[in-house]
Design a binder for these strands. Structure first.
Lengths: 141, 141
DNA sequence: GGCTCGATTGACGTTTACGTCAAGTGTAGC
DNA sequence: GCTACACTTGACGTAAACGTCAATCGAGCC
């Protein structure tokens, strides 16, 4: 039986925790992958005895990780970004560096957006043409 | 001296060819990478003696390859797509399969578009906030 | 003829992101 | 007490995408 169904009779929602298996099912991952993300420092679950206990924060970081992967980032890049978002930015140099890194990241995302739009337009044009040919073929039978 | 400057006194533009070094410089790749793409079947240059000769078509496929990579596709996926675009679609089954594959590809691109937009909005929000804090800090000095 | 430059093939090395056993532990139910 | 199931660590394996030599070759230049 999953930990969260028993050990958590908390105020409904807040303080919810997850086992590795629950997260694996939810995000369609193997437990091996999740542990690997931990090795990379992407998530740092607590322990209940030997077992890992994941919080909502871990879940969020996992979500961000998967989104980053879908965008073609390496795990190291994802870690750098996610860590940065959670790091303190209370001094001016920290703030300035934050802005520099953000700018670089945004430039990359915008390049990707351009690539994506170009590709999508091509795909849609091909689809349109193919559907036209298909309709023509169907009519001629 | 590059091949294309000598061996090609052709009608200006049409029939232009490139050496591996020229393409490497243009796209900021190593020659090793370009030869590797050839091993994967992504480009199939002709030969002049032992040397590879790349045509405009090769250049286009190389461009598409790099765009695919920026979008996070594997080389195998890129090959599948690029090949499909160039394959004959003169029978109804071929056409239908073409549409199916296109549809799957488009679904993936649209998921990625959603990921991208979400990420871009977050980055912009963070940037805005950081700039606000920076301005505030500068004012207070 | 000697030198340099760019290209070639071949082979082994490397990083990333896990997969795949193996062997053990802890808890729940019968 | 036995079984089943989820979780644990550890170690080795693997596919993708090149990097990195090494040895060789051909063309152009002084």
């Amino acid at each position: 039986m999953p930990v969260s169904a028993v050990a958590q009779a908390s105020p409904a929602g807040v303080g919810t925790t997850y086992t590795i298996g629950e997260l694996a099912r939810e995000f369609d991952l193997t437990t091996r992958a999740i542990r690997f993300y931990e090795d990379c420092g992407l998530i740092t679950p607590q322990r209940s005895g030997r077992n890992r206990v994941y919080t909502g924060r871990d879940r969020t970081r996992l979500k961000l990780t998967l989104r980053g992967k879908r965008l073609g980032l390496t795990l190291a890049e994802v870690k750098e970004l996610v860590d940065m978002y959670e790091s303190p930015r209370d001094t001016l140099p920290q703030l300035k560096k934050f802005l520099v890194v953000l700018g670089a990241h945004r430039a990359q995302l915008e390049q990707q957006m351009a690539d994506l739009q170009a590709t999508l337009e091509e795909v849609r044009a091909h689809e349109k043409e193919a559907r036209r040919l298909l309709a023509e073929g169907e009519r001629r039978r």
